[in-house]
Design a protein around this nucleic acid. Structure first.
Lengths: 216, 216
DNA sequence: CGGAAACTTGAGTTACGTCAACTACCGTGG
DNA sequence: CCACGGTAGTTGACGTAACTCAAGTTTCCG
């Protein structure tokens, strides 16, 4: 893989890593930190599509489609690994195993989007919030491997609202209820998961166990 | 590609092509007809994730993940092309161009799911309905190539409701309003698009122009 | 220490959901 | 031929989850 690596790049919180409409952007993989993908309607309504964590690819779509259909922003301090664009066909020719890993990652992304769609389409506010926090906690645990003591998610309530498709006010009231039930604790700009099992139960969801996961 | 083709298979409307939880299902490509992917919650709430049309792959996820995370059902009469499972690694080794096409299709699916997520999360009922019908019309036009006179979509209002994350009753009232505006006409289990530009305008959306699209 | 960003809270509004009919349109079988 | 049962679509009355507006408080950061 190192043959395709160009450089590493840091990104500060709030930084735009990729913007909708961009043509042929670089291809990145996330080495550390959190980011999120989103789209906005003309009048400013924003929908967060998914979060990117270490091991995820950013910009694959732009290398395959004509232009990027979504934007990506850093949530925390991140470090990215930049790959040479235009080298994707070469990679597919010379590194079939890596190519398969890329497809694996794309299929997993699709699977996550399916879950989110189910959540936003058919779950109510509490279930949605519980699902999102459980989902992010599971991803965070999976990336560090093993279990963390402080299960903290680096989001603001505005991010949660824009992910769940709810208003900020209603999101706040919903999160408050989860906190009253002792499932989470809301910190300054972040959320600490206290009772993961309670979240699973409320959401009616459990994380899939990922086997054979590649890390690019 | 024919080296990996096993057989063709017809599917009748309503037939379950693939069910959630299935392990290592076959990999299909759609030769003709319409189907849809969906997930259901334990209490029966259903969310349609996307529609599958000619040229789409079915079951890639199951060949990459441990088991299928969603179900697929035929909407119309379909013909499917069955590929030999377990041959995916071989294909990636021997047919890099085909492998790239598969990734291309996966990336496009992801792009469509992004759009749906934006729609369900941030658009109101009318905008959502307009978007969905415009989206499906665009896909239908793209698969036949050129322009059809009768732009008919083979759905029931229940399908529309389960795609938009709305109740059946509210979906009906919303579609009625679109019909009153002369944008669509609702037939017996199907919808005819009358004023595609009006739908685009209402949805605030236009179909992307797909270049270099592979057909497997 | 001042200003901005994040979080809270209450009051009033609305879009969408639920319930409960009813009509229309089949295809099937008596 | 008509009775029928099932699916799809339609409509009105009413309930409620979530939205908007508006005003706070708290926390962070320069």
């Amino acid at each position: 893989m190192s043959r395709f690596k160009v450089a590493e790049m840091p990104a500060a919180p709030g930084m735009a890593i990729m913007v909708e409409g961009e043509r042929n952007p670089s291809l990145y993989s996330v080495l550390s930190g959190w980011g999120f993908r989103y789209k906005i309607l003309e009048d400013g309504r924003r929908q967060i599509l998914n979060y990117v964590l270490p091991g995820d690819l950013i910009g694959l779509q732009g290398n395959v489609m004509k232009e990027m259909q979504h934007s990506v922003e850093a949530l925390t301090k991140m470090t990215l690994c930049i790959f040479e664009r235009d080298k994707l066909p070469t990679l597919f020719r010379d590194q079939p195993t890596l190519a398969f890993d890329i497809t694996w990652i794309a299929a997993r992304e699709e699977s996550m989007l399916d879950e989110h769609l189910l959540s936003i389409g058919r779950r109510n506010a509490q279930e949605r919030a519980a699902y999102l926090l459980a989902f992010l906690d599971a991803r965070a645990q999976a990336t560090v491997g093993g279990h963390q003591e402080h299960r903290q998610l680096p989001l603001t309530q505005q991010h949660v609202a824009d992910t769940l498709g709810l208003s900020l006010v209603h999101t706040n009231k919903t999160l408050r209820k989860l906190a009253e039930q002792g499932l989470v604790r809301w910190l300054d700009r972040g959320c600490e998961v206290v009772e993961i099992e309670g979240l699973y139960r409320l959401a009616g969801w459990r994380p899939p166990n990922e086997t054979g996961r590649p890390f690019i």
